[in-house]
Simulated assay, not measured.
Amino acid sequence: MAIREIVMHPNEVLEVKCKPVDTFDKELHALLDDMFETMYDAEGVGLAAPQIGIDQQIAVVDTREEEALELINPEVIKSSGKEVDLEGCLSFPGLFGEVERPFRITLKAHNRFGKEFKLKAEGFFARAIQHEIDHLHGVLFTEKVIRYIDPEGAEE
């Protein structure tokens, strides 16, 4: 396993629609392991492949509230409710803003072995998953911010 360099905005790979994964092999497994190690090292709760310069539909999420999750070719198939909450991004250090997202989601994705699964998530876990899926479509959280928040507590 290795810690990869996190790509910072305005790198163009962050705004590209990523390609689906069609090969589920040892290289993919190693990449997923590296992504977890990189995310934990950066003290994040999610990391998408474009954030390490790879334009493939791969993301990892670990909110510490639910089991760590690997998402390959993920797709939200159902959503409900609304919630506005604070988000940040490892590719935008020190930048935080309020973003509205569905509170509950159902998604389908593949695991590292290519097996499709469905998952229901809500609250912060759902928010983290949606944030990472957005990355895979070239959508940045800054495009959805309602209001930026100063980390020291003052609103911008």
Rank of each mutant, 00 (worst) to 15 (best):
M1E: 10
A2P: 15
I3Y: 11
I3F: 13
R4Q: 13
R4A: 12
R4C: 03
I6D: 07
I6Q: 05
I6P: 06
H9M: 07
P10L: 11
P10N: 08
P10C: 07
N11D: 13
N11Q: 09
N11Y: 10
V13R: 02
V13T: 12
L14D: 02
E15F: 08
V16E: 01
K17S: 07
K19M: 03
V21M: 02
T23G: 09
D25L: 14
D25Y: 13
E27H: 12
E27M: 12
H29A: 14
H29C: 13
L31K: 02
L32C: 11
L32S: 03
D33P: 10
M35P: 01
E37Q: 05
T38D: 05
T38H: 06
M39G: 01
D41K: 13
V45F: 01
A48D: 05
A49G: 04
P50M: 08
Q51T: 04
I52N: 02
I54W: 06
D55F: 02
D55H: 06
Q56P: 07
I58H: 00
A59M: 00
V60G: 01
V61T: 00
V61H: 02
T63V: 05
T63R: 01
E65A: 14
E66A: 05
E67F: 10
E67V: 07
L69F: 03
E70L: 06
I72W: 02
N73T: 03
E75V: 03
V76I: 15
S79P: 05
G81H: 09
V84N: 10
D85Y: 15
D85M: 15
D85R: 12
G88Q: 11
F92D: 12
F92I: 14
G94C: 07
F96R: 06
F96V: 05
G97P: 13
V99M: 09
E100D: 11
P102E: 07
R104D: 15
I105D: 02
T106Y: 05
L107T: 01
K108E: 05
H110I: 02
N111C: 11
N111Y: 09
N111E: 13
N111D: 14
F117L: 06
L119M: 08
L119W: 05
L119I: 04
K120I: 09
E122C: 08
E122K: 14
F124P: 05
F125K: 02
F125Y: 14
R127V: 03
A128H: 02
A128R: 01
A128G: 02
I129L: 00
Q130L: 04
Q130I: 05
H131S: 07
E132V: 00
D134K: 01
D134P: 01
H135L: 10
L136W: 00
V139I: 12
F141Q: 08
F141A: 11
F141L: 15
T142E: 13
E143W: 11
K144G: 09
K144W: 11
V145H: 11
I146T: 14
Y148S: 11
E152W: 08
G153Q: 13
E156T: 10
